[in-house]
Design a binder for these strands. Structure first.
Lengths: 212, 212
DNA sequence: GGCAAACTTGACGGGGGCGTCACCTTCTGT
DNA sequence: ACAGAAGGTGACGCCCCCGTCAAGTTTGCC
């Protein structure tokens, strides 16, 4: 009655599709349960204050099991951030790539980001609450922000004559910072209105970026 | 030889001017030493991971002494934030108040903020690293950002016809977010160039805010 | 000079986190 | 059906933090 109940553990959907092995299914469920619990804990009390046991407690697993999946809490954060921030960046960039006008370039990028925020609120909260820690951890600050990619895209747009010639690096940072801040405001809205957030940013940045 | 050496403790300048009392001088020095140590600790490892003892260890004081000055680490953070973020807000607002043109309104506000960042790097680092925690702590998000004040000032400018009629609240958030992000980028520069940061933001926001 | 008030000190009991590991249950392959 | 591998379990030893408080030191004042 003590061991092996772990398969019923995960709060997330049963992942029994690929490779019918029960062993394998449990493994994925446990990993998912740990990640889900950690997402909540980091969002609620912050990474620094969180302990491995805080995470385990929101799970049906035992302490020792945690260490079969991750060596420490930091590794969990890394997994979480890579999974989620990576996805957000990909989507935003895809939206920008498909844009055919400078207006769409700006508007659709913001829009993709705001839509993504709304899809996983817990993750958004985690990112907001721990942005400073994440920055300090992966010293490449852009991992969080994707600002480098934006700067690159902006540079291309400037060279193509689509956009006025500004200080690309800082303008990219400004756009990212603005999106982060407006994004958290939007999430506080009831209901959140990504349309409004997008339009506000688009209005400001398009005007400022328009070819003079 | 064990007690009472605390007066020589503080790393900060001797504050013996007002009220020559030695007792009073020690008290101020100790308080200042704790605040200075806490600033470093919070900036280095983050508020959540910091312990009261981490702070005390960067001091010549004993554990017990800490509790004569603050009831817990959170109170220290509150004192630090009130002291510093308050000052930053005051300066920025003063700069905006003196502005006579819409351009100056935008440019001087950013400039005042960047100049302030450069004045106390440790505090800047603390704010950057713990922005999420601070937000969560004082649930009034604007305590960190001063975004409400900016929104107010913007509204007035719109009514005076100085600035185009945008979504004031989100535009304010965008300006604050942009300043935060560009500010941290600027601090990473060697040497930091507040002029460049100011111009980049001014170019973007003035264009966008200019009366169409 | 001398005494009371003010303050500092650091050891202490209680609490809890860390990572491990011997033991036990469950699954898999034959 | 069964044996062995895979993997879950939770108590354990070690460490450190918390907030307190009795004892000791310094200051202010008469």
């Amino acid at each position: 009655m003590t061991a092996g109940q772990a398969s019923a553990a995960g709060g997330r959907g049963t992942a029994l599709e690929l490779a019918g092995g029960k062993r394998e299914a449990t493994k994925q469920a446990n990993r998912a349960a740990i990640l889900a619990a950690a997402r909540e804990v980091f969002a609620d009390i912050g990474f620094g204050a969180a302990t491995v046991r805080d995470i385990v407690r929101r799970t049906e697993l035992a302490t020792g099991t945690f260490y079969n999946y991750f060596p420490d809490k930091q590794s969990v954060l890394v997994a979480l951030v890579e999974e989620s921030a990576g996805e957000a960046r990909v989507r935003v960039r895809a939206a920008r790539r498909e844009a055919r006008t400078p207006e769409a370039f700006v508007r659709d990028g913001f829009r993709a980001y705001f839509d993504y925020l709304l899809e996983d609120r817990t993750m958004s909260e985690l990112l907001r609450r721990n942005a400073g820690t994440i920055r300090a951890m992966f010293d490449e600050p852009s991992l969080v922000a994707g600002a480098d990619e934006l700067a690159e895209d902006l540079r291309a747009a400037v060279e193509a004559g689509l956009v006025a010639d500004h200080d690309v690096e800082y303008v990219a940072a400004a756009m990212v910072g603005a999106a982060l801040e407006v994004g958290t405001r939007m999430l506080d809205g009831d209901p959140p209105d990504p349309e409004r957030a997008t339009e506000a940013l688009a209005a400001v940045f398009i005007g400022g970026l328009r070819r003079s």
